[in-house]
Design a protein around this nucleic acid. Structure first.
Length: 149
DNA sequence: TGCGAGAGCTATT
DNA sequence: AATAGCTCTCGCA
């Protein structure tokens, strides 16, 4: 199956998604949109519904490197919750900075919810803008509180 | 190739 | 406040 791409809005940003069947190859945030559609769960997620995006597959999980293990641990962080870099690190038997590196190179944000990984003191970083991280966390907090979507 | 420094951090002096 | 710890990447030779 060929890789197809598309985008949808998230607040002031656009979410670009490239996927192939049920495997997500790449997700990124941008200021402009591109033609095409995104997987339904992503669309619902961006609309504020508490969708469990961890059910989608990501290319980041296909290998068995340390990074993949980190991504799997991060993916286990549920909607509306957060974990610290240190917590993920100890779960994978590595150091917090390594988790930071893994997050920085996360090919599929949202599917691998790297925005739910925060610093022990403070929110931590996010690329391309930490505003997105804040917005995502705020949205999830709201979405979790809301009884019905 | 091969070495050194620094990254979306943290716990420990 | 400074530093070591861990893995990966990039720059420079």
């Amino acid at each position: 199956m060929a890789i197809v791409g598309g985008s949808c809005r998230f607040g002031l940003w656009y979410v670009h998604v490239w996927w192939d069947g049920d495997v997500v190859h790449r997700v990124r945030f941008a200021e402009t949109g591109i033609p095409g559609t995104v997987p339904a769960p992503v669309l619902q997620y961006c609309a504020g519904r508490p969708v469990d995006l961890s059910r989608m597959n990501s290319v980041a999980l296909e290998h068995d490197s340390l990074f993949s293990r980190i991504y799997r641990s991060v993916r286990d962080v549920p909607y509306g919750a957060t974990a610290t870099y240190g917590a993920i690190a100890s779960r994978c038997g590595t150091a917090p900075r390594v988790v930071g590196r893994a997050m920085a190179h996360n090919p599929t944000p949202l599917v691998i919810p790297c925005h739910r990984v925060v610093a022990a003191r403070g929110i931590g970083g996010f690329s391309p803008s930490v505003e997105i991280k804040e917005a995502l966390l705020a949205m999830e907090k709201k979405g979790k509180t809301r009884v019905k979507g």
